[in-house]
C-alpha cells in the first residue's frame, strides 16, 4: 500500500512537473559567462531528472533537478570538464542519469541495433537483387560470326 502510495505521489509530482516545467527558473541561476552557460545547458540536456523521469535536469522544475543544475554550473566554474562532471554524476546516481547510455557490456546490443538490423535487412533482401548473370553478356567473336552467317543465310 505504502509502495503504491509513493508511486501515486511520484505521479502527482510528475503532473506538477508537466504543468509548471521550464528550463532554468530564474535568470540568476544562469552563469554570467555565456560560453560556460551554453556548456552547462548542453550538459544538462544529457542528464535525466531523477524525479520527473522523462525530463532532463535542464527542463525539470523538481527541486533535485535545480540542485543538480546548480552543481553542474558550480563544477564548470571550478574548471571541471564535462567528462569529469558526467563521471561525478555516475558516481552519485549511477548510469540511470545519462540519457545517452555509455557503450558497455549491457548496452552493446542497443548500440549495435542499427548495424545488426541493417545487416539482417541486407541478408534478407540479397536474393531479390538482379544478379549480374541476368544482364546479357556481350557476344563473343565466335557467336558474332555465327549470327552474321545466320542473317546472311536468310
Amino acid at each position: 500500500m505504502t509502495h503504491s502510495f509513493r508511486l501515486i505521489a511520484s505521479f502527482t509530482l510528475c503532473l506538477i512537473c508537466a504543468s509548471t516545467s521550464y528550463a532554468v527558473e530564474t535568470p540568476d541561476e544562469m552563469l554570467p559567462n555565456p560560453i560556460l552557460e551554453a556548456k552547462a545547458q548542453s550538459l544538462g540536456q544529457q542528464l535525466r531528472c531523477l524525479v520527473c523521469q522523462n525530463e532532463t535536469i535542464e527542463d525539470s522544475s523538481a527541486p533535485l533537478a535545480r540542485d543538480l543544475r546548480h552543481i553542474v554550473r558550480q563544477q564548470l566554474q571550478q574548471g571541471h570538464s564535462p567528462a569529469e562532471i558526467k563521471r561525478w554524476m555516475t558516481q552519485h546516481y549511477g548510469e540511470f542519469i545519462h540519457l545517452k547510455p555509455s557503450f558497455s557490456g549491457v548496452t552493446i546490443f542497443l548500440w549495435l541495433t542499427p548495424l545488426l538490423s541493417l545487416t539482417l535487412a541486407y541478408l534478407l533482401a540479397r536474393p531479390l537483387w538482379r544478379r549480374p548473370a541476368h544482364i546479357a553478356e556481350p557476344l563473343s567473336e565466335k557467336e558474332k560470326l555465327r549470327l552474321h552467317n545466320l542473317i546472311k543465310k536468310n
Binding site: R6, S10, L50, V51, P63, L64, D67, L68, I71, H92, Y93, G94
Partner: peptide, 14 residues
C-alpha cells in the same frame, strides 16, 4: 539544504 543527500545519491524520500 539537501547536500548530504546528494552525496548519498538520494533521488526521493523515503
Amino acid at each position: 539544504d539537501g547536500t548530504t543527500a546528494i552525496e548519498w545519491g538520494v533521488t526521493g524520500v523515503p
